[in-house]
Design a protein around this nucleic acid. Structure first.
Lengths: 341, 341
DNA sequence: CTGAAAGCGCTTACAG
DNA sequence: CTGAAAGCGCTTACAG
């Protein structure tokens, strides 16, 4: 036996003096004589046969592969979503090809091309911050590949979507801070190219309006979405003649961590002098002192929801495939950093 | 044009009145008349042609896919390694199929089978805690697939390996604690089925021996490798008549976090009454108060090293493919939790 | 239930 | 440089 060659159904057929057709049928549980079926399975085991999915998928014109494109694999939110997707797709015998865009539009396009070439059945993705043009998303659907956008979605692209209700979550977070007695609440906002950050800002504005609090432009800081940028913005805010008495780091808990550190450094007491609220419920928010109020996005469940949505849609006829949006309600996790009273 | 069918090289050939062979050559940058090449590329673009990698790989008998199996995707160490692998393999035009074993031997076996069926060129893996039999690793190599083990490796399986020097890192961590004046250092150990945990224990023992400190069996606690198990073990240890004055959570920072919490709860002052050292340099260790001493494993670099190793080996002839081990020296990160002096 | 044959979409020796 | 043909490993209508 040539060690370089894998066993094929031909090898099994030859060994047993039957045709490859029968071997294929036996291996795929189609109607075959019970006795020969047993012999085939036995021989397959002996010859250490492994199916070649490339050939099988090519012939069948389908595949059991799902592509995933996220900005960063090693970010808690995304790796949790991926873990959730894997959990479901594994049970259905589907594989996951995973790419990261590194927040780059160019890389995102290339990843998608790779996935299309690999003939994936579905592409699950969350946009890079750099992406403002959505032709590449359209091209996915042009190839008859199911597109599921999640979290950072392009609203105008009609596809399946699984999102959080960011506006409502922000509204609740800011309302909570107002009820705690905070009066000058600053907002650290994310790049407004992304819908999610626009929504979070909208929730902030709605909460202020509802409680008759005037919007102060200087308290709204753009692009403060990393720990470093959050820290810089906080340093500026806390140096103002009348600094804010609370900061809502709407972009991420990393940004909130930057706020936390600068507050300590500048001697602002949290929560009495400064309230802090983050976003995402990263594990570390529970550990800081004081612990940080944040918003849980149910990332793992988001992953399982996405995968389940896909497996539901896959069985439908084309006409039934409509644009569908599942919105998951995030949960405000109140911790010490905003408990002023 | 049938919207269900993708464009193939036949479609392009027919449109231009040439043969598929030429189209294939043009697309793959083989020798073709410059003028027709241009026409082909133009037509490919117009028809929105996407290569079918399944067919191409099947024909060529190779693939550009790498399989990865880790215990958990959503664990900082592993997602960093994966991110590192992706970073390199993307540049080489290789795809990553990622599976998680969920610390289960059975799932690990199934994942590997899936990957073999998918005809991956290489399998990169870190063992589940449940795995004590290594036949499935052998079967990878039987199919002529390159196997690279990392971190949690089966020593006896001869394959490429990328590991940390766990013994040395533990030795240094414990030596550091001894020099800080800690005299009764407890060890929280991980499941001894895994080589890495045996090595970490060995490093602990060597440090004690070198400094003429007697080993006290009651201070060595098995299977304390999650936050909860770490907490339970700590509660027991700190309730002893003569409790330890330091705890080395050799399994993970999560375990160290359990130690930290119980110490606070039971009123032990860290680091003066109790020193704490973890393992892995999870982001949160910097944030706790006091911050936790730990060991950085250079996870992202581990990923890039693994991928680079693969791309080096892939070009070698079979005879040159030898079992090769790359050991990365982890780094002790000293923080407040062990600075007794 | 089983065999013979065609074909999925591509690539590559072989001629010319 | 280009065409005709075979084949990668599988599956599936079509006969029987």
């Amino acid at each position: 036996m040539n060690p370089k060659k894998r066993t094929t159904i031909y090898d099994i057929a030859k060994k047993l003096g039957i045709t490859p057709s029968s071997v294929s049928r036996a291996l795929n549980d189609k109607a075959v004589n019970e006795k020969t079926k047993k012999r085939i399975l036995q021989a397959a085991k002996e010859l250490n046969y492994k199916k070649n999915s490339l050939a099988s998928n090519l012939r069948k014109g389908e595949s059991t592969t799902i592509g995933v494109v996220v900005p960063r694999i090693n970010q808690n939110f995304f790796s949790n979503v991926i873990s959730g997707i894997e959990n479901v797709s594994y049970k259905k015998g589907h594989n996951l090809i995973i790419c990261q865009s590194d927040e780059s539009y160019e890389k995102e396009k290339k990843c998608i091309n790779m996935l299309i070439n690999q003939h994936v059945n579905c592409i699950i993705m969350s946009l890079s911050v750099d992406t403002t043009d959505y032709k590449h998303l359209q091209s996915i659907m042009d190839q008859n590949i199911t597109l599921i956008q999640f979290d950072r979605v392009a609203e105008e692209v009609e596809s399946l979507k699984v999102i959080n209700d960011n506006e409502q979550a922000s509204f609740e977070a800011v309302s909570h801070m107002i009820k705690q007695g905070y009066k000058r609440i600053a907002l650290l906002e994310g790049p407004q190219t992304l819908e999610i950050f626009r929504q979070r800002k909208a929730g902030y504005l709605r909460a202020l309006e509802k409680h008759d609090i005037a919007v102060i432009d200087e308290l709204i800081r753009p692009n403060a979405w990393t720990k470093e940028l959050g820290a810089t913005a906080t340093r500026e805010l806390l140096s103002m003649p009348s600094p804010p008495d609370a900061i809502f780091a709407s972009t991420s808990d990393f940004s909130a961590l930057g706020v936390h550190e600068v507050a300590m450094e500048m001697g602002f007491k949290v929560p009495s002098q400064l309230g802090i609220c983050g976003y995402s419920n990263e594990p570390f928010t529970e550990i800081t002192s004081p612990s940080i109020t944040t918003i849980d996005q149910f990332s793992f469940q988001m992953g399982t929801t996405i995968a389940e949505l896909y497996f539901q849609e896959i069985n439908k006829s084309d006409t039934a495939k409509i644009s569908k949006v599942i919105s998951i309600k995030p949960k405000l996790i109140v911790r010490a950093s905003t408990l002023k009273e």
